[in-house]
Amino acid sequence: MHTIHRARASLFGLFHHGSLYDRLISQGFRPLYARVTADVTAASPGAGTRVLDVGTGPGRVPLAIARALPALRVEGLDLSAEMIDLARRNAAEAGLGDRVDFTVADVADLPYPGESFDLIVSSMSQHHWPDAAAGMRELRRVLRPGGRVWIYDFRFALRRAEAAARAAFPGYRIRREPVRTGRLPVRLIGRLVVEPS
C-alpha cells in the first residue's frame, strides 16, 4: 500500500492516538451516531437480536445502542488494536463492559461463523476499506437470513459500496438514501440500505 493510502486509511496517524481521535472525530460525528442509534431503535429489534458495528473506532455506536436497547447483543469490530483498547475502556467506564464485545479484525476477514448477526451497521468506515467487494462478501456471509445491513458514509463514497453490495447480495433490495444529521441544509452523509426483498 502506498504511503498516502496508508496515511489516509489511518486518518493520517490519528487512529494510533485513540483518545485524541475520540475527542476530535467522534465528537464531530455525535449527531450521526445518535441517528444510527435512533434508526436501530426505530427498527424495534427483538430481545436477543445480534448487532455488529463494523469500523467501530472507540466504540461510541455500540455503546449508544446498548444503552438504548439493553436486550440486544452488540459487538464492535475495528482493524486498529488501539481503537479496540479504547472502546473496551469506554465500555468499562460506561458500565457496559459485560454487554458489549469488541474485536480486532478486518471487515474482509471477519472472525465470526456464518449467519451470526441480524443487523450490521457501519458509520464512516466504508470509505477506508481497501476492498469494498471483499468486505461486502464477508458481511453477506455473517448476516442471518432476513437480516439487514446499514452503511452510513459520505454520499459520494457509497457508490462503490452500492456496487459491491449488488454483487454480494443478489436478490436483496439495495438503495442509497440521504441522511440529515444536523441543521445544515446540505446532506453530506448517506445510508446504504441492504435488506431482504
Rank of each mutant, 00 (worst) to 15 (best):
S80E: 13
Y33A: 08
A157I: 04
S44Q: 15
R67T: 14
W129P: 00
R176A: 00
R191I: 11
I174D: 05
D85Y: 04
E195M: 09
A91K: 01
T181G: 11
A9D: 15
R144V: 12
D106I: 07
R175L: 09
R175Q: 10
L184E: 12
G135M: 08
S80R: 02
W150N: 02
A168T: 07
L32D: 01
S123D: 06
R23Y: 09
L63V: 11
H16M: 09
R140N: 13
G57K: 03
P58M: 05
A132C: 06
A42F: 01
V54D: 00
R144W: 06
D98R: 14
V104P: 05
H128S: 06
E82H: 12
A7T: 06
V74N: 08
S197G: 14
G146P: 09
M83I: 08
R67L: 09
H16F: 14
A92T: 09
A134W: 02
L69D: 02
I4N: 08
G28T: 11
M1K: 07
Q27V: 07
D53E: 14
T56K: 02
E75C: 09
A9I: 01
L72Q: 02
L11R: 13
E115Y: 04
G146V: 11
L11T: 04
V40N: 01
V104G: 05
P130A: 13
M136F: 10
E115R: 14
L52K: 06
G13W: 05
E93P: 07
E82S: 13
L188W: 12
A164Y: 01
H2I: 08
A167D: 14
R35W: 10
V100E: 00
A47Q: 12
P145A: 12
V36H: 04
A68P: 01
Q27K: 13
S125Y: 03
R160W: 04
